[in-house]
Amino acid sequence: MSKKVAYWPGCVSRGFTPELHGSMAKVAPLLDLELIELDRACCSGAGVIAEHNQELADTLNARTFAMAQQEIRNGADLMMNICSTCQGAHSESQERLDASAEYRAQVNETLKPDGLEYTAGISNKNFLWLLVEEIGLEALKSKVKRPLTDLKVGPFYGCYIVRPKSRIGIDDEHPRDTYLPLVIEALGGTVIDYAGSHKCCGFPIITMNTEASLAQAGRHLGDAKDADADCLVTPCPLCHLNLDLQQPLAAKAVGRKLDMPVLHLPQLVGLALGLSPKEIGLQRHVVKPTSVIDWTTSVVGSVG
């Protein structure tokens, strides 16, 4: 069943991790997913704008929601993002906006000059949730062309998409903090259970307590390595920055070799759905996804 989503790619997916945005664009048609990009929307604030001024963050996010709702009125099913941090920052704003008509009215007043208005109750899902809740694991499985047999994948969620449970909508019917292993398995891969899957990558304090930030990244990467993971997969580009881009520094911080490739979620899906490593931008990672490439060599050849 095809889906049409009002699509918020986030900033980092078009900045330091362009391969995320690119791979999502490549994977979408294979999943019968039509992406209506919200290209005028702005940064979710990643918690930092909220820290500076809550009303500002809520208003900027209400603006994004209002734009998505315009698309929903034009036929999109719901709003989708590909960034755990955006999801968390959005959910936090939405929690306040939906809680109070008075507060919402105040925020909408600021949006008014541009003809935008947010109506309570938007459905905004991360790609991970959409895979499980809208597309369905069975449907996903049926689309797999190249099962990730023998690929040992460690999940890494990103804090913003797993906590706090009530805000994120995690309950008995939606155990969203257990979705990554389900997706990895649906794609034919092997799930690696390790200590760091639901922990923090450390990115938010990279400029404020660099040592602790890198120690966090290094610790989780090391735990995954010790658990014999070939690679990690994450729905969060900010985690990707600390886990991949900063991995050489993280390795120094914890004093050990890490060499742990980190894939974006759409990349992992893309691989299983038959896309080539180059199409999904695996060559753009700082840590060469050697284990993944070894596995695909015989099928698609190595990447540049």
């Binding site: 001024n53 500002l56 603006r63 507060y103």
Partner: peptide, 27 residues
């Protein structure tokens, strides 16, 4: 331009608005 306008409007308020659900409760 509207993003800049939103920044200007909110940053120039006399008092920073903070909406704490713990105090206000939901509708």
């Amino acid at each position: 331009a509207d993003v800049k306008r939103i920044f200007d409007t909110i940053e120039n308020r006399d008092k920073r608005n903070e909406f704490n659900l713990y105090i206000s409760g939901t509708d």
